[in-house]
Nucleic acid binder design. Structure first.
Lengths: 344, 344
DNA sequence: TATCAATATGGTAGCGCTAACATTTAGCGA
DNA sequence: TCGCTAAATGTTAGCGCTACCATATTGATA
């Protein structure tokens, strides 16, 4: 409603929002002082700061994050790349990340690869284009192009879910060991014909890592380690089908080690309907420790993975790095816990 | 590796990535032409475009989205504000949004209010600061400050989940009608003492809307409509507790209308353990149509809400608007479907 | 009062890109 | 060939903010 007789040669749209300059004029300070009130309040005298804050309210200033990020080459964006949003495991990891990053004023950029490494690479590129401050990515396996980008990128990177040789920070659990742990438990219960059942292992290669641990133990005990892979998604329905399949093609099986709780839960509920007794006729074990597994009868023997912790720990490690804290361990084993239920 | 004898008076860090100018030099065109190759390839002659694309590859250019967004005052960010990430319903809505927006090159900014309207308002502010292209927000109830911001904001806004008086686009379902629908069904089955059980209705006010529809029908039939509110989260455990509570304080109840499937499933599984027959001793109904409800015995009578559709439709409406398509209806009733299972 | 360091504030240029306008080139009929 | 229009490309000046350096102010000390 003012400043008119100027002759702006090349007028542009802009966002039509009040800017830092409007605030500065109102508070009778310079723009940079306003900027400092926003970014480093301690460096401005209390009286000045109060004046600026009043001006901010008065003009209804909304900070333009894009401009700030561009100028400082730092966006406070955290790129998060997961393979699926359909899997509760990743959702819980995201929740953990979210709750930590949010406290520190970082904004998550969420990307979903649908288990496609090409898409993963492309997402990483895009996120670098947003000048992300850090990257959280699922797994240690990426395609070459992606691996190269990761290695050259200077900011913190957390590769999560599994342990191994990471580019930078690594937070996860030891999947082969989890597989071994459950296999040992099943053996200790006296089961001799244990089948491992997974769904779409090409995608969920961590399920394969667990299988490998499982097989190791069985073979050490002189047993076979049959594997059945379902090609549907790892859901209740698939678990039910898998139970039927095991009964049909491996009738001597006395235990099923499922790659996850969804499958295992589906199998137990299906067993109920079909009148198959668990664990008397067949024992069932899962992986993840989802709540539902503890509400069915018999309740599920499973391994609890600390999913939210993975998110939280990754976030903390990244934040520490971004704030220049002394570099702590870059590898975090979040562990897991065997939960012995009634089903095995 | 060139341009040195210039005297850059005020050198800055920058991102040290190749810029559009580097590409332009390599391709022997001007910067704006490179920009056009990126944003409107059709407006550049094929031969020139090829040269530019080769140059992009050669110098390893990564587009700086921040700079572009700032200059064009348009970020291709879609702000998405939900009250919780712990509720699968919102996750599925997000999936729907994601899958549509991604196709069109929009990036979602996810915000989680934890059912706090102050936080909601603050998130909306922050997201405006990112020059978001559009906003998707759960529910129609916001605090005054937020409401004001929404009304004044020029870009598309979708208020989702429920139907009613929205600022702009509205996609959702008629919760009171869903409540009525289930109440009618329960009456038609001959139940006479129907309790409605919800968890934390202060947060989940859509559960209250359904209750109101439910009560309307019962009262029209000359029946009471008792309400039990649990103060824990709406999960399996709470459903189990609720069943006990109903048995204790309303022993004459012959049916429970739960506010969601999690509660209802918890109750059915608990009934199994306690030897309470469903629906003979007590009928149970839920809301949402989650998969788990169809895998338990008896399977759950519920109302299926098209959650991913809400996301998809909202996204499509917003995209249409952003691309300047002729304005279609701004209110979309996604409907719902009564699923009659064995439990009621 | 002069001296110096520490603290607080300001001026200016530039982050990397694109809107707006200007100019050149190509295309085509008379 | 000359126009003329449409298509392709270029020039310039910001978008709104912060890094960098410079200057002013303060306060403690000699």
């Amino acid at each position: 409603m003012s400043s008119s007789t100027q002759k702006p040669k090349r007028p542009r749209k802009g966002s039509m929002q009040p800017t830092i300059a409007d605030v500065a004029r109102e508070a009778e300070v310079s723009a940079i002082t306003v900027s400092r009130v926003l970014n480093a309040p301690a460096s401005v005298r209390a009286k000045t700061r109060a004046r600026v804050e009043a001006a901010i309210d008065k003009v209804g200033y909304v900070r333009n994050m894009l401009a700030g990020s561009l100028a400082s080459a730092n966006s406070r964006f955290i790129a998060v790349v997961v393979p699926s949003l359909s899997n509760i495991v990743f959702i819980e990891v995201i929740k953990g990340l979210q709750s930590e990053f949010e406290k520190h004023g970082y904004q998550i950029l969420l990307g979903n690869t649908d288990y496609d490494l090409e898409r993963e690479c492309q997402l990483v590129r895009t996120f670098l284009g947003w000048s992300s401050s850090a990257l959280v990515i699922s797994g240690l396996r990426h395609n070459d192009a992606c691996q190269r980008i990761l290695r050259e990128w200077p900011n913190p990177i957390a590769e999560i879910m599994e342990l191994g040789e990471a580019v930078d920070i690594n937070v996860g659990l030891d999947h082969p060991e989890a597989g071994r742990c459950m296999a040992r438990h099943l053996l200790s219960c006296g089961y001799q014909n244990i089948v491992y059942v997974a769904a779409q292992m090409a995608n969920d290669y961590r399920a394969r890592l667990r299988y490998e641990g499982h097989r190791e133990i069985l073979e050490a005990a002189g047993l076979e380690a049959p594997l059945i892979e379902m090609d549907q998604l790892g859901q209740f329905e698939t678990g039910a089908k898998a139970l039927d399949k095991v009964k049909a093609i491996l009738p001597e099986a006395d235990a099923i080690h499922f790659a996850n709780d969804d499958l295992a839960t589906g199998a137990i509920l299906h067993a109920q309907r079909r009148g198959i007794r668990v664990p008397e006729d067949i024992a069932i074990a899962g992986f993840n420790g989802l709540p539902i597994g503890q509400h069915i009868s018999p309740n599920l023997t499973t391994i609890c993975s600390p999913r939210e912790s993975i998110g939280r720990l990754s976030a903390r490690a990244i934040i520490a790095r971004l704030e220049g804290k002394p570099l702590t361990a870059s590898s975090h084993d979040v562990g897991f816990e065997l939960h012995v239920g009634e089903s095995a």
